[in-house]
Design a protein around this nucleic acid. Structure first.
Lengths: 192, 192
DNA sequence: GTCAATCTTGACGATCATGTCAAAATTGAC
DNA sequence: GTCAATTTTGACATGATCGTCAAGATTGAC
């Protein structure tokens, strides 16, 4: 192949993800991406077409990693309470990492009003849907039949609560406060 | 007084609130406000200084009305479950009203990454803080001492959950789905 | 009715982001 | 080493938004 790409795509997407995570799809500009990755604007347009195409790649990478982590968190622990706690703690650490904390990319993207792209919306819905499935599966396997019977409904409540945590983080709540809320929530939900 | 204002301020702020609610502080432009209110851009700059000043007035009006409604919702009902349900239903209806649904202004504002204004951030925190107080007060008055003793912590969980509902709405969940989640949440939280 | 303070209007300049393009540079294939 | 496909580069045109300002219009006070 002639005229070979001068930058590492993996590295480029990873850096772009960081930019999108900190600024959001709407507020991150091609200039931001160019500056952060060291790849010129024109090259990015040539390679990907537009900003949204870059976002989609970055988001897919992020979503894949997130699902892996969540699956593992929900598999470790003696009982369903511990597993849910692991899951919530993982998300909390995830959204409160970085300086300043970068928040939750999925939630930020869901709230980004300037996004009319069906592809982006579907990706957000995909993450939420898969999270519900993971949690539902975990709850289903609990010995408590009262819980297991309502696994789907409860899973949606849990995922909804995680979205709330993401909003509270943006509003200024600290990791410690979020963890306390999460503990209270798990305790109240699956009995303590 | 000479050289009198040619538009009704109350009406202007109410219309501006509608614009901000549908587009968000960041995405709503002065042109949007001018077009919706019928007041020219220059007049708005002359009267208020900048967009954020208009937003603050609109937000204060919105927050006041919201607190009133929430206070009433939390006061009606036989038990704490019914009161919380009223409260959650109110918020759900509030965020799913309009066509297309306008969502939750507080949550949208909290997630708006382009906002560095301390005044705006404080207003968002103020709403969340006051909501926590209202809910906490309602829970405190419940006969169930196990609940009342944890009123503050539980109230924060409830408010966090409401933020989650706002995100789920943006992600495409319908009013019906949100209400079902809310019902499941209340049932799990305060026993059913 | 006149005056003067205030508001309104329309236009202006500046900034920023987008997307495109032609010319130059790069490099694998032969 | 040459060629040709592809990428890179820098510049360009476009459009949106912001904030400002001078000139004109309005109206309460006298």
């Amino acid at each position: 192949m002639v005229g070979v790409r001068q930058f590492d795509e993996q590295e480029m997407i990873a850096t772009a993800l960081d930019v999108f995570w900190r600024k959001g799809l709407h507020d991150a500009t091609m200039q931001d991406l160019a500056a952060a990755t060291g790849v010129q604007r024109g090259s990015l347009y040539n390679a990907y077409g537009d900003k949204e195409a870059i976002f989609q790649r970055a988001f897919d990478q992020y979503a894949g990693q997130l699902m892996d982590s969540c699956g593992k968190a929900l598999a470790e622990g003696d009982d369903i309470a511990a597993r849910l706690q692991n899951f919530l703690d993982l998300l909390i650490v995830n959204m409160t990492s970085g300086s300043p904390p970068r928040g939750c990319l999925t939630t930020r993207t869901a709230l980004d009003g300037a996004i009319s792209s069906a592809a982006v919306r579907q990706r957000v819905q995909g993450v939420l849907s898969r999270l519900e499935q993971l949690v539902s599966k975990a709850i289903s396997s609990a010995p408590d039949k009262r819980l297991a019977a309502n696994a789907n409904r409860l899973a949606r409540v849990v995922v909804t609560f995680t979205r709330g945590l993401a909003v509270m983080e943006r509003a200024g709540y600290t990791r410690k406060q979020l963890k306390e809320s999460a503990a209270t929530f798990v305790d109240a939900l699956v009995g303590g």
